[in-house]
Design a protein around this nucleic acid. Structure first.
Length: 673
DNA sequence: CAAGTAATTGTTTTT
DNA sequence: CAATTACTTG
């Protein structure tokens, strides 16, 4: 690291942002304008000027982003070790660290983080207690109730209002839902259970406390928040609590890339920072270092924005116009994408420099098959929930019980895995087991269980007892694994396949020094962990990235393929009910386009299956995305791949015709006459 | 009250 | 083609 300081290669606007002093700073950074580089350089500059790393708090959207930024900052510093001591991570991850550290201040003995699935389980459990399960009055699903609750918290809006605006069909049950949610909150508190929203609420509460808040504020002199267009009200309040007068605050964002409205985020928050802190400095980054001019020409036509950033390319190496590729149907689209990927690969472009983006995880179904058939390696980001599979969550539930015996949801989960224990028994037994520290409660529970369940249950409880008294992490893990292993057999038909996954998690957990932290981090950011597991073996391989547009945020590739650019997919038909929803889809489209450095291909199949996975699905006519306006189409080349003449030439596996000729099936009348 | 079988029904996006 | 959900039977 010789002589590559933080100031190397910055343009004028970036330099202003990097060198800016302690006053509040807003960096409006268009796509590809070196936002990460600027933020990183600013951190490096602070460190070089003698700021102790632990006095810097870097809030990012994913853990991966925080890690990338601290690593890059480290590379720019004289003391690379120092950067590792920066406080960095997502709002939720930092919240967990702070809340765990101050558990006693918020009246908790243990902090257990509930994942969204656990939240639904707990609501299910409570709603049975509330007698809200009858079939004759259809009550909203626990998932819907969880969504209402989350939205209320994240936007600081009463649940009743949330229902009126977003969930009108639930309004009839508003009183019952509110009662259930009050109980839900009370139960979580009693048991030391925090869901994702609680992490933020508790952090905010700590900041509001006179003494603790003052101490927390003194802890950091510099607070930098990335992707500020995607924060919600409670996160704004947290930032406010950290920097009440804006001193030392830097926020970076792009209102045209706000795509988390469904989670309560609102790009207005970015625009409001200057109203909140009139002395804030605004720096605009408008020079794009990422893409070629033809790609930007299209992006600028598509771009929706109030900050009115117009991107100008810094690159002068020309480049070709983006392509809109018309395809006959989804299978044809998959072949076209695979063809293009292989062709580029033949021309020397690594697979990892090519990405396929889609609106929803299921859109790549046909493509995944095509890639497998052709032996093209790929990794899919976003969507996949290794850690969300039932059996993996079973083992995590056992870990949680070992660490927090009051974790009623985990007890409930583990109990329902036993033979002869269903919802009803599990509910009462979970109450008993989680409700007291009494030594005799295990024996009591066995006695209270139905006879057929007793031997299994006592084996589980013995293992749990071993786990609770083990002092080394490996011992806890081993005991929990021992508890879960026989249950898999009982509960899942395909238990042997699942046992392998569970084994893997157990191995990984056994190596941890702090099991509680491992579980919490895994719960808060499962993508990071599962990606680590899933990708390690392939790391030196070359593979194509398949990603949802959401998960592609902040990333870039030489070549980008956007599939399913059809109305109903982009924009998603789920979003068409409101103007705000449509506007968000529009921004999402913009985010997708701006991921490309050199090559951008947008695929518009003429026909799409109604059901993504079923092959009996009807194929219906699809229209190209409404975002491909005439002005946009002026800036692309149209390739009509659905025309038969062009097809077969560069196809590898011979072509399957889009619509096979009808086959006459012989009548069976002669068999039955 | 749970297990097993049959029917149905769907599917954004994520910390 | 899952993965719930509804219904029947033990």
């Amino acid at each position: 690291m010789v002589d590559i300081g933080w100031s190397e290669g910055l343009d004028e606007a970036q330099r202003i942002a990097v060198e800016h002093d302690a006053g509040p700073l807003v960096v409006a950074a268009g796509a590809g304008t070196g936002k990460t580089r600027t933020l990183t350089a600013r951190v490096a500059r602070l460190l070089e000027s003698g700021v102790p790393p632990e006095r810097i708090l870097l809030l990012t959207f994913t853990r991966r982003a925080a890690a990338a930024m601290t690593t890059r900052a480290a590379a720019l510093c004289a003391d690379p070790q120092a950067a590792q001591r920066i406080w960095g991570g997502t709002f939720h991850a930092v919240a967990h660290r702070i809340v765990a550290e101050h558990a006693q201040h918020v009246g908790l003995r243990d902090v257990t983080v509930l994942d969204p699935g656990d939240v639904v389980d707990l609501l299910d459990l409570l709603r049975e207690e509330h007698g809200l399960v009858g079939t004759e009055r259809r009550f909203p699903t626990s998932q819907a109730i969880a969504d209402i609750c989350s939205r209320a918290i994240n936007t600081a809006t009463p649940a009743r209002e949330v229902m009126a605006e977003q969930f009108p069909w639930c309004l009839d049950h508003a009183a019952a839902i509110n009662g259930l949610l009050r109980d839900f909150a009370a139960r979580k508190r009693e048991r030391g259970l925090l869901d994702f929203d609680d992490l933020l609420r508790y952090w905010l509460a700590l900041l509001a406390d006179e003494q603790v808040g003052a101490r927390l504020r003194r802890r950091w002199d510099w607070v930098l928040v990335d992707e500020y267009q995607d924060v919600n009200q409670i996160q704004v309040d947290i930032v406010d609590g950290l920097c009440p007068d804006g001193a030392g605050l830097t926020v970076v964002g792009d209102d045209a890339q706000a795509v988390y409205g469904f989670r309560g985020a609102n790009a207005e928050h970015l625009l409001e920072v200057r109203g909140r802190f009139p002395d804030a400095t605004l720096v605009r980054l408008e020079r794009n270092f990422r893409s070629t001019q033809p790609v930007l020409d299209l992006a600028n036509v598509v771009r929706p924005s109030e900050l009115r950033l117009e991107l100008a390319a810094d690159r002068s190496d020309g480049g070709s116009r983006p392509a809109v590729v018309r395809c006959a149907n989804a299978d044809d689209e998959a072949r076209q994408v695979a063809d293009a990927i292989l062709a580029a690969h033949q021309d020397g472009m690594e697979l990892r420099e090519q990405a396929v983006l889609m609106r929803t995880g299921t859109h790549s179904h046909q493509l995944e098959i095509e890639l497998k058939v052709r032996d093209i390696p790929f990794v899919k980001f976003g969507g996949i929930g290794y850690l969300e599979t039932a059996h993996v969550r079973d083992l995590i539930a056992a870990f949680r019980i070992a660490l927090n015996p009051a974790d009623e949801v985990s007890w409930y989960r583990l109990l329902t895995r036993h033979r002869s224990i269903g919802k009803a028994h599990a509910r009462s037994l979970a109450g008993l087991l989680a409700g007291s520290d009494d030594e005799g409660r295990f024996a009591e529970a066995v006695a209270a269980a139905p006879p057929k369940a007793r031997s299994g249950l006592s084996a589980t409880l013995a293992a749990v007892r071993r786990a609770q008294s083990a002092d080394a992490v490996a011992g806890v893990v081993e005991a929990c694994h021992g508890a879960v292993r026989p249950l898999l057999r009982v509960h899942y038909a395909d238990w042997s396949r699942r046992a392998v996954d569970v084994e893997r998690l157990a191995e990984s957990a056994a190596q941890q020094t702090d099991l509680g932290a491992f579980i919490a981090e895994t719960t808060i950011d499962p993508a990071g962990v599962s990606a680590d597991w899933a990708k390690k073996p392939y790391l030196d391989d070359d593979y194509v990235i398949l990603s949802t547009i959401h998960s592609a945020k902040g990333l870039e590739w030489d070549s980008v393929h956007l599939i399913r650019a059809c109305d109903g997919a982009v924009p998603s038909d789920m979003a068409l009910t409101s103007d705000a929803g449509l506007a968000e889809e529009h921004r999402l489209f913009y985010v997708a386009l701006t991921r490309a450095r050199d090559s951008l291909r947008i695929y518009t199949p003429d026909r799409l299956p109604t059901h993504p996975t079923s092959f009996r699905a009807r194929h219906v006519i699809a229209k190209p995305s409404r975002f491909l306006t005439p002005a946009a189409m002026d800036r692309v080349d149209v390739i009509d791949a659905s025309a038969p003449a062009e097809q077969s030439a560069n196809r590898v596996g011979g072509g399957v015709p889009a619509r096979p000729a009808p086959v006459t099936v012989p009548s069976m009348d002669d068999l039955f006459s």
